[in-house]
Nucleic acid binder design. Structure first.
Lengths: 348, 348
DNA sequence: GATCACTGTGGGAACGATGCCATATCGGTT
DNA sequence: AACCGATATGGCATCGTTCCCACAGTGATC
């Protein structure tokens, strides 16, 4: 960033173009281009003169024009569901860092959980001719649409088209199994599951992990203990209240994402239940608040920034090898045991 | 990779251009442009034919080319300090929503608190020829640089160049005064201030508010109770430990942002102090965790998404009137009294 | 002294879209 | 019959950049 002084040549309306630099340096536009980008011949003295002229004029190449000519974009699109959720914010932060270090800019779209906004964003990215798109998809539509337009897509966190589209996800099944097994080992058998949905991709896998762990503990899935409540604190809060008020309430709850965990936590607090004496809680995704509360919440921690960074890396591999086999990267998760999980109250 | 070479008309590799649409519809490029954008004459049947051809080809206009020709960009740059901090994430979410509703795309740069990254981002935005930039600045440099390049800047949350650059901030002084007055009214006099810095813009104003409230309560600022610890949880945590271990520890703490509040909260928990019996805490910026912990933290709540949205609105006003007087918008804050603040222990 | 390789530079055609201007057609008026 | 305004369309320059190609100069080799 070169700073300009007072009456800079910039301050008069029109932005300097390569032509202005060429005239100032007394060479042709071609030579300026070569001198500044470093591709092709340029005598040392000429190069220096051009660079000085460019600096004096405050010339900054127009990325639009360059991209138009080269037909190669240096920006990536990122579509996330909800920036206000720390998970997506961290994801975006991770993607941003990796993109920056590779000289890419990041165009971000927060869909606020709206399907329309997701499609809109995809269209905008096609129009912008981004090099690729990273998305936490809510349906297969985005990937299909972008794929049809020849834009590489990396599905993150959830993956609707494994084998067709690249993906970067975490070990959902293993993580959910570890979390639930942890509860089983503490003696719990009536373990509730709060989850957004159980049919697709990530939700399905977490449900599988939960169910496997129960089976290994000799218990079965009790349908009334499985709550599918979407991505909504209010709803999960209400349904947690209902469930925890019942006399045959579960002794432990596994909340499959940080939003649902928040609803459950609020319900527990509201009912004055003691954690973990009355009810244990374990969450998938270690949100910041979970280590602020008391007791701290046991959680399956994901390297969320790493997820974003890995997605950008995967995208670049894809750009380098457009026809390579599509790949799903699975990142490890880690169960962080904290105070919110304890022995089942029914047992000694 | 399977996705290419489907049955779609797109899959010839090359993306369809306006020329392809023109040929398919049997008209000229000009006519296509007029028919699709709706500016200028186009017979109904021709318009329809063109639209159908465009739809069939999956034609999406190239924003780059359009922008280059029109010299008017429909994207804005947003520079925030740290997306992982809920404050900045909410700000970005607010800006994104408002931008989307106005048909703008958002290019986001997270500087990770690095000054270099801030400059880099500014440069990238000049190169991208964005319509304007919204920034939570860490120095006056960004605004100066972008201003010199004729790019409108809106400074958000902090403002280094009031009267020169537009700004959108909150009532820092009033908010800090209310927070501190609340403590004073509860009988506190030894009130510590944790703040990032006290010399510029937002930090200075919050310090002023704190100091005014103390004065109104008949107390003076005690330098050793004012901790400037930057944007760093670890540092504020350590210094809070030091301060709260002393026998003459403060009876209340005002943490001037959510990061510092986190450090203080952790220190309080670590020392086993009771809140608010042993020490009261009030924070500036109501982060999500503050209503999850027990007791909940009294905080000065800002409409953070509103801040981002207001910045985008201000930017558009600026674009409509490039030479208008520069303006600083001040958004109201609201003290949310919760359980973390109580009567001073020394008094009855 | 002709040929060649190499260095260095400029001219000009793209890239994909827009929008000014010229032109064409047509019903209606002078 | 000439002219008009309105409607409708195409031709072409243009935005800022890159990069292919032509060309000029310079030594060195045959």
């Amino acid at each position: 960033m070169t700073m300009e002084r007072g009456a800079s040549p910039l301050s008069r309306g029109r932005r300097p173009t390569i032509k202005d630099v060429a005239e100032a340096a007394g060479v042709s536009r071609s030579t300026v281009s070569r001198a500044l980008t470093g591709s092709g011949y340029a005598a040392d003295d000429v190069r220096e003169r051009v660079q000085r002229a460019a600096a004096e004029l405050g010339y900054v190449p127009d990325v639009m024009a360059r991209t138009l000519k080269q037909q190669i974009s240096r920006s990536i699109g990122v579509i996330v569901s909800d920036l206000r959720n720390s998970f997506y914010a961290d994801l975006a932060a991770g993607a941003n860092g990796e993109a920056r270090s590779r000289g890419y800019t990041m165009v971000l779209a927060d869909t606020s959980l709206s399907a329309d906004a997701e499609s809109e964003a995809a269209e905008a990215f096609v129009a912008l001719r981004v090099a690729g798109v990273i998305v936490t998809p809510n349906s297969p539509k985005v990937s299909t649409y972008l794929g049809a337009h020849g834009i590489p897509v990396i599905e993150v966190d959830r993956q609707f088209a494994p084998g067709v589209t690249d993906g970067v996800v975490v070990g959902n099944r293993v993580g959910a199994r570890e979390a639930t097994t942890h509860l089983v080992e503490l003696g719990h058998r009536r373990i509730a599951l709060f989850i957004d949905e159980t049919n697709w991709t990530t939700g399905h896998e977490r449900y599988q992990g939960y169910s496997e762990a129960l089976a290994m503990g000799g218990a079965a899935v009790v349908p009334e203990l499985v709550v599918s409540s979407g991505w909504d604190v209010a709803d999960s809060h209400r349904r947690a209240l209902d469930m925890l008020r019942r006399p045959d309430r579960p002794t432990a709850v596994f909340a499959a994402n940080n939003v649902l965990a928040e609803g459950v936590w609020r319900a527990i607090a509201e009912l004055g239940l003691r954690v973990p004496e009355d009810v244990s809680l374990v969450a998938f995704d270690d949100a910041p608040w979970m280590s602020m509360v008391s007791p701290m919440v046991t959680a399956v921690a994901q390297d969320t920034m790493g997820l974003g960074a890995a997605a950008v890396r995967r995208l670049h591999e894809r750009l380098d090898a457009p026809d390579g086999e599509s790949l799903t990267t699975v990142l490890a998760v880690r169960l962080v045991v904290r105070g919110s999980t304890g022995s089942c109250p029914a047992l000694p």
